[in-house]
Design a protein around this nucleic acid. Structure first.
Length: 423
DNA sequence: TCTGGGGTCCTAGGACCC
DNA sequence: TCTGGGGTCCTAGGACCC
């Protein structure tokens, strides 16, 4: 909070323009100026436009449009298969350059990120700084971007959207009523089609009307998000630029549209095993373990089903993940033909933390026979009290009611538990 | 000739506990 | 013989974003 009380923050939102298409053009400059699109293989039923160049957009080609439809709008459209490794490499280059200006860089996806340049030491004005970034991204990576400059993340994000490609836009709070307010609510980052429809039903069409809407009405009709959006519409957004946020993963998942609809159990289980392996490999790279596995089934009629299950002890291997995915699949598959399968690991924690918890778990087995104080002392000796600051709770395997939760207060204030105390 | 794949966050109901 | 009120955890689904 302290930081956000500062009077003026200067936040940049850097947004690469049609990133995948631009990377392809940087890689093969002969593509420049042409209508191109990156898209999957239609034979594998992945034939949708992932990104397209501005030349293609002129014809009405859009992201997620099927290739055949895009070709109808723009017959000369050049379709390229995706090269994700290439895009990842370009992304690393991009953020490396941004970090040369400030360490306060928060990547939000492969091709966009926030920078907090409030404390930038150089002599340039914010707009000169943005120009310098833009120029360097062109010179060193041959990649165009738009940059939004504003006092907070939300406004910076909205600003970067206002001039594309190659734009630099400053959004000042005092100008909101001219720049932001006339736009329809659906233009707001965070408001999609559904929320816009709900807002329209209560006669809120523009961002200005949202900014002036009644709190109670918003709360009832939209929920807590409605109030958040009202604040944003008024230019209020206290979120800090957090360079670490990219590091804490919440889930890792892989899914796949099958080349054709499948109802054969063996075949489906093979796909599920492959997906489990991909997830396990990615978890291994990130040194993460999971205690919650989910599967997704999309039937041929596009009905989606997700099923998840918590696990007492975190897992990480392909075998363990597949076992759980298999159980969920067998329990829930209707037998109908399936279009897509997915496996996702949720509730991820760091490997090292998981071992800690496992060890505590094994200690808990003794909880019934050994005095608690002694156990706690052993834990402290082994891990140091700092590892116990999280109020870790322990349950014995027997699940007895009176068994215990350790909390921080007890650990730092270890008066011996007397008989019959409240653990 | 339909509609990818990677995520995050929120909601809402039911189980369960005190 | 008609009925509490918190709270947390788990699960399923939906909205949104790139």
């Amino acid at each position: 909070m302290g930081d956000s009380k500062r009077k003026h923050r200067v936040i940049f939102h850097v947004d690469m323009n049609s990133f995948y298409a631009s990377v392809e053009m940087a890689f093969d400059p002969s593509l420049k100026g042409k209508a191109i699109a990156v898209a999957g293989n239609p034979k594998e039923r992945k034939g949708i436009i992932v990104t397209c160049s501005y030349e293609a957009r002129k014809y009405g080609v859009k992201t997620t449009m099927p290739i055949w439809e895009a070709k109808k709008l723009c017959p000369q459209l050049l379709i390229l298969p995706p090269n994700f490794d290439r895009y990842r490499a370009a992304s690393i280059g991009l953020f490396t350059i941004l970090r040369q200006y400030t360490h306060l860089v928060e990547p939000v996806s492969i091709d966009e990120g926030y920078m907090d340049v409030s404390d930038y030491e150089g002599s340039e004005t914010p707009i000169e700084l943005a120009q310098s970034i833009q120029t360097r991204l062109i010179e060193q990576l041959d990649l165009p971007c738009s940059i939004g400059i504003a006092p907070n993340k939300f406004l910076a994000k909205m600003a970067s959207d206002m001039k594309k490609p190659n734009g630099i836009t400053i959004l000042r709070k005092r100008e909101l009523s001219q720049t932001l307010w006339p736009l329809p609510v659906v233009e707001m980052h965070g408001i999609g089609k559904k929320t816009a429809e709900k807002l329209n039903k209560i006669n809120i069409f523009t961002i200005e009307e949202l900014a002036n809407a009644d709190d109670l009405l918003l709360k009832v009709k939209i929920g807590i998000n409605g109030l958040k959006m009202k604040n944003r519409a008024n230019g209020i957004d206290e979120r800090l630029v957090d360079p670490e946020s990219i590091l804490d993963f919440k889930s890792i998942g892989n899914s796949m549209t099958l080349p054709r609809d499948v109802a054969n159990q063996q075949e489906l289980l093979q796909h599920l095993a492959k997906l489990s392996e991909k997830v396990a490999n990615r978890m291994k790279n990130k040194k993460m373990v999971s205690s919650n596995i989910a599967i997704q089934i999309r039937y041929k009629d596009w009905v989606n089903v997700t099923r998840t299950r918590k696990i007492a002890n975190p897992i990480r291997t392909k075998k363990e993940i597949f076992q759980m995915a298999r159980v969920l699949f067998i329990e829930n598959w209707s037998g109908d033909s399936i279009r897509l399968l997915g496996v996702t690991a949720h509730d991820l924690i760091d490997e090292s933390e998981a071992f800690e918890q496992l060890d505590l778990f094994s200690y808990a087995k003794h909880a019934k026979t050994e005095p608690l104080v002694k156990i706690v002392q052993e834990i402290q000796k082994k891990y140091g009290s700092s590892s116990l600051t999280k109020g870790i709770s322990i349950k014995s395997e027997s699940g007895d009611q009176h068994d215990t939760s350790f909390n921080k207060d007890f650990l730092f204030n270890p008066s011996p538990p007397s008989k019959g105390n409240e653990f």
